[in-house]
Computed example of a mutant assay.
Amino acid sequence: MAPNPTPPAEPQDNPDGYVGLDAARAERLARDRGWSTVRALAPGTIVTMEYRFGRLNLEISDGVVARAWKG
């Protein structure tokens, strides 16, 4: 049986630190800190629940990050 693959490392970064930032600034900062995927979402957007290593989700309301979470 083949071993389970090792998932890529995620940045040691707290998503809560993005809340309140301008959306464009938050996305640049996240990429600078090593997030491979940054997903901007409108409030109430339906998203799948699979966890993706290296992805940061940003809920954007009126151009500002209202919520941020990994995966």
Results as ranks from 00 to 15, higher is better:
N14V: 08
L41T: 12
P7V: 09
A66Y: 02
L56T: 10
G71E: 00
V47L: 01
G54A: 06
L29F: 10
S36V: 09
A68R: 02
D32R: 12
A40F: 05
P3N: 04
L58G: 04
L58I: 00
G17S: 10
G44D: 07
V19T: 01
G71F: 10
A23Y: 07
I60V: 12
L21D: 04
E10C: 03
A66F: 12
G63R: 00
G54D: 00
W69C: 11
M1Q: 14
A40P: 13
D13K: 01
A23N: 04
P3A: 00
T37K: 03
D32C: 09
G34Q: 06
N57V: 13
A2P: 08
G17D: 11
G44E: 08
T6S: 01
T37P: 02
I46V: 09
D16T: 01
I46F: 10
D32Y: 04
A2K: 04
Y51E: 09
T6P: 01
D22Q: 05
E27G: 02
G20L: 11
L41E: 13
A9C: 05
T45C: 03
R31H: 10
R28G: 09
R67W: 06
R28P: 04
D13G: 12
A42W: 07
I46C: 11
I60N: 07
E27M: 05
A24L: 09
N57P: 05
P11E: 13
P11H: 08
A26N: 06
R28F: 06
L58F: 07
G17E: 14
K70V: 14
P43I: 08
A66E: 11
R33P: 03
M49Q: 11
T37L: 06
Y51P: 10
R31G: 15
Y18L: 01
R31C: 00
L29S: 11
G44R: 06
V47A: 14
E50V: 04
